[in-house]
Design a binder for these strands. Structure first.
Lengths: 221, 221
DNA sequence: AAATGTGAAGATTTTCACAGCT
DNA sequence: AGCTGTGAAAATCTTCACATTT
């Protein structure tokens, strides 16, 4: 039942990203009677209504002509196709300020991501409790990932530690890494990677300003 | 001299993002003799060499047939087209853990972004010094942005404060906002926006794992 | 009247393949 | 031989427009 794609069509990365946005709009909007239309979603997310319909049609026949979509049903379908209709077990490596910010941000938990353990190479940090979890030494990483059955890792270590830690995580059988270190990580194809480089985001902003794009995209990445 | 586009071609957002990656590769690689080829850049960034050549050709005639590109010259050209060949003056609003992490990360400074002032609505934080800057009350935001001539704002406030603060910034004449609050901000077209929603990044990672994409992209966003 | 879903058209992006330099 | 730049082809993505349903 998982991973059902109506046609042989694959969702593009861009579509997946927009689906995440739609999900936010669905959650926020005080939908009357649980109904939602492509036009309203489009308005909330800064895309065209045709785009919304295309994206949603690719999930199957969820809308009803003349009526729109049932918001809870649509949310569930999007969550299913994004793979967040279950809890993902994650570990976090590198407990600095960024990590503390992430841990405090409860959006993770509500979206189905659970951080099970924290690791840091600094011996003075080991044992400290952050958001209810005790920091463990990085040496334990491999064993603990296996024991916990963690599938995701959040990497908030300094740049020079990122690749070695990523290698350890790979060896431990992790399936995905969310990397915040400003380096280009090398991982085998079976380990998926999403990198968030904060400096790059600022560069993109500078680019947008410099080249005054006409269309303002309120949902710009 | 600024904003020179060889042809009437506009850079796409995707190209701009890849250019940021190329910049990283150029900085990291111990280029022999300062030379760099499209193949090596491609390898480092996880794209095809043809893609790299297309992207770089759009900046003008920077490469030399048979030889490749001159790394420093190429870096300078990319920085110019991205608009980071100068210092951007920025302010930061909302001094929590995330802000502290960002401020400590010196990648900003080296890439030409300078944070000039910090603001927070919490009176108990006002006056506190973080990374050499004293936190100011949010009421001063408008005046200070004008006085400082700040063009960019980094928004690390809680979700419910984001839109009001963004409105203040807009009124103060800011030109771009880097938003970390998990909300869809509404801004007039003249104010550019880049949003980083950390939960969405995790969702994208889950999506990638669920649909085992064959091509591993080491520079995945 | 108010919506969806979808062919067809249009636009954009990526890849191919190779001429033309060094 | 090695490498860029670029037409042309291919693939992908987006928009248009409207038949179809409630």
């Amino acid at each position: 039942m998982r991973d059902r794609r109506p046609e042989g069509e694959r969702l593009s990365r861009a579509t997946a990203h927009r689906l995440s946005l739609y999900l936010r709009a669905l959650a926020v909007w005080p939908a009357d009677g649980g109904r939602m239309s492509s036009t309203r979603i489009a308005l909330a997310c800064g895309v065209t209504d045709a785009q919304v319909r295309r994206d949603l049609a690719s999930l199957g026949h969820l809308g009803r002509r003349g009526l729109g979509y049932d918001a809870p049903e649509l949310s569930a379908a999007i969550r299913a196709v994004l793979g967040i209709d279950r809890v993902w077990r994650a570990v976090l490596v590198g407990v600095g300020n960024l990590a503390r910010a992430l841990l405090r941000y409860r959006g993770f938990r509500t979206q189905g991501f659970e951080v099970l353990a924290l690791f840091d190479a600094d011996p003075t940090k080991v044992g400290e409790r952050v958001e209810g979890l005790a920091i463990e030494p990085t040496e334990r990483l491999t064993d603990r990932v296996r024991d916990l059955g963690a599938e995701l890792a959040i990497l908030t270590v300094p740049a020079d530690a990122a690749q070695p830690v990523a290698d350890q995580l790979t060896a431990a059988g992790i399936r995905g890494v969310l990397n915040f270190a400003p380096v280009l990580l090398r991982l085998p194809p079976r380990v998926k990677l999403v990198s968030v480089d904060l400096a790059i985001q600022l560069e993109q902003l500078a680019f947008l300003i410099q080249h005054g794009e006409p269309a303002a995209d309120p949902a710009a990445r």
